[in-house]
Design a protein around this nucleic acid. Structure first.
Length: 423
RNA sequence: GUGAGCGUAGCUCAGCUUGGUUAGAGCGCAGGAUUGUGGCUCCUGAGGUCGCGGGUUCGAAUCCCGUCGUUCACCCCA
C-alpha cells in the first residue's frame, strides 16, 4: 500500500517552505506596523457562517466547500475564506463595544474543493486583514496600500491593481431593478446557469463565461453608472487617496468578486508569471455583513493574500530575499575515540549558537570533507589521533585551504572570533 | 464541473509513431585513483513494480480501456 497526499494537497518542502515562512514573517511584521492584531479562528465553523455571507449562489458555497456532519449531526465546514469567521467572532465577542475601528489580521489554511492546478490547491494558505467599524475611504486606501507595500517589500514588481465599486444598498436597488428588467427580456437567450443565478443573485451572472451570455451581458447596465452620490464620492476619494500614495490602478467595471457580501470598493492585485491563476490578493468593503450576521450595522473593509501564489511568483521571478543559513563548522572525527570527543565539542558549538554538524556514520576523511564542502561549511575541524594525543584540533578554512592547529579548549572562542571578523 | 497534455533511475529527460534479446543518457549518489584532507579530472559501481489495474498479443514502457496523480486552458478565485 502506497500512500500519497489527497488530491489538491501537498507537502511543502524546502526551499518553498523558506519562502513561505519569509512571507508570513514579513506580513506579520508589516501588519503590526499598520496597527493590526492577530486573530486565530477555528479551522471549521458551523456551515451557516459561510453560506450566509458568501451567498448560496456563489461557486464557493454551491460546489466548493468541504462540508461534513459531526457525530451529533451538526453541519460543519472547513473554512474556505477568512472574512466570515472574523465577522462571526467580532459579533460573538462583542467587539463592537470597544472603540472602533478594530484592526485584525489572520494567517491560516483555507479549504476549497476545486480542480487543482499550479497555484490552486484544495488546501491553501492566506494571510489577511480586516478593518471593522469605519466607513472612511481612508480604511480602503490603507488596506490597499498595505498589500502594495507588502509586495514591494517582498520584491514583487509588475503587480497590477484592479479596482471597482459595487455601490451600497441604495444604489444597488435601482441598479438591480434595471438589470433584472434587462435580464428578463434576454433570459431566453441566457444559459441555464444564468437563469438560476438571476433567481438567486443576479449580480452573479457576470461570472458567466458562455460566449452568448457574455455578449448579452456586455450591453447590460453597469453598476457604476448607478452609484449614489455617497458611493460615488467614496469611490472618488479612494482613487484620489491611491493617487496621493502613487499607487496606480486600473478600473474594471466587470470586477464582481465571488462573494455576495461586498459593497462599494472591490479590488484585486494580479502578478506576472502565474498564467490564469494570477490574482495574488483580493478584497473589498463589506458594510452590511456584520449587520446581516446579527450584529450592529458596522461598515468594514478587508483583504486576503494568497500565500501559495505569492511564493510561486517569487520563485518564478527568481527572488531570493533570505540569506542562506549554512553550517559554519563541520566536525571531522577519524576514529571512535575522536567521535566521542567530537559530540561533546559539537554540543558546545551549538550551545554557542554556531551552526555546526558532523557525520554520524563511519566514513573516511575524504567523504567527510566532501560533506563539509557540500554543506558549504566555512570551517572543518579535524579530530584525529595526533590531535587527541596533544589535546588539539586542526582547523581548516574551507575557502582558502589554510590549516592550523589550536588547543582544544580554545576552539570555541577562536571560531567565534573568526566569525566576527568575517562579518 | 468541461476540454487537452504529461507520468520511464533521487532529479531532468530520451525510447513509444512502425510492439521483439539484460530499458538508456546527463546530473546527482557511493567507492577508488590520492590508506589524514573537499572543490577539478579520470575510473568503477549502486540505483527502475516504465504511476496503478485490466485488455489485445507468442511477446507491451510502446497499442486499447479504466483509474490515480499532476500540468495547461475554460471556470472560479487567493
Amino acid at each position: 500500500m502506497k500512500f500519497q497526499t489527497p488530491r489538491g494537497t501537498r507537502d511543502i518542502l524546502s526551499p518553498e517552505v523558506e519562502f513561505r515562512n519569509y512571507i508570513f514573517e514579513k506580513s506579520r511584521e508589516l501588519f503590526e506596523i499598520y496597527g493590526f492584531k492577530e486573530i486565530v479562528t477555528p479551522t471549521f465553523e458551523r456551515t451557516e457562517v459561510f453560506t450566509k455571507g458568501i451567498g448560496e449562489a456563489s461557486d464557493i458555497v454551491s460546489k466548493e466547500m468541504y462540508t461534513f456532519k459531526d457525530r451529533k449531526g451538526r453541519s460543519l465546514t472547513l473554512k474556505p475564506e477568512g472574512t466570515a469567521p472574523v465577522v462571526r467572532s467580532f459579533i460573538q465577542n462583542k467587539m463592537y463595544g470597544k472603540s472602533l475601528p478594530i484592526k485584525l489580521y489572520y494567517c491560516s489554511q483555507m479549504f476549497r474543493y476545486e480542480k487543482p492546478q499550479a497555484g490552486r490547491g484544495r488546501e491553501f494558505s492566506q494571510v489577511g486583514v480586516e478593518i471593522l467599524g469605519t466607513s472612511d475611504p481612508l480604511a480602503d486606501i490603507e488596506t490597499i496600500a498595505l498589500v502594495m507595500n507588502l509586495y514591494k517589500e517582498l520584491g514583487i514588481d509588475q503587480t497590477k491593481l484592479i479596482i471597482n465599486s459595487m455601490g451600497c444598498r441604495n444604489c444597488r436597488k435601482n441598479y438591480l431593478q434595471d438589470l433584472n428588467k434587462y435580464l428578463e427580456i434576454k433570459s431566453k437567450n441566457l444559459c441555464e446557469n444564468c437563469n438560476f443565478r438571476i433567481k438567486k443573485n443576479p449580480l452573479r451572472v457576470f461570472d458567466c463565461k458562455v460566449d452568448q451570455c457574455k455578449k448579452i451581458l456586455s450591453k447590460s447596465p453597469i453598476l457604476r453608472d448607478y452609484l449614489c452620490n455617497e458611493c460615488e464620492d467614496h469611490f472618488k476619494n479612494v482613487l484620489k487617496g491611491l493617487e496621493s500614495l502613487r499607487i496606480e490602478w486600473q478600473l474594471d467595471n466587470r470586477l464582481v468578486r465571488g462573494f455576495d457580501y461586498y459593497t462599494k470598493t472591490v479590488f484585486e492585485v494580479t502578478a506576472p508569471k502565474l498564467g490564469a491563476q494570477d490574482a495574488i490578493c483580493g478584497g473589498g468593503r463589506y458594510d452590511y455583513l456584520i449587520e446581516d450576521y446579527g450584529g450592529p450595522l458596522t461598515p468594514a473593509v478587508g483583504v486576503a493574500i494568497g500565500i501559495d501564489r505569492t511564493v510561486l511568483v517569487m520563485m518564478r521571478m527568481g527572488i531570493k530575499p533570505f540569506s542562506e543559513k549554512n553550517i559554519q563548522v563541520f566536525l571531522i572525527a577519524l576514529n571512535d575515540t575522536a567521535k566521542k570527543k567530537a559530540i561533546v565539542l559539537l554540543d558546545d558549538l551549538r550551545k554557542n549558537k554556531i551552526p555546526s554538524d558532523m557525520d554520524y556514520g563511519n566514513r573516511g576523511i575524504k567523504s567527510q570533507f566532501k560533506m563539509a564542502d557540500r554543506l558549504k561549511a566555512k570551517y572543518a575541524l579535524i579530530l584525529g589521533e595526533d590531535e587527541l594525543r596533544n589535546n588539539k584540533v586542526s582547523l581548516k578554512e574551507m575557502d582558502t585551504g589554510k590549516q592550523s592547529i589550536i588547543n582544544y579548549d580554545d576552539v570555541i572562542n577562536y571560531i567565534k572570533e573568526k566569525i566576527k571578523e568575517s562579518k
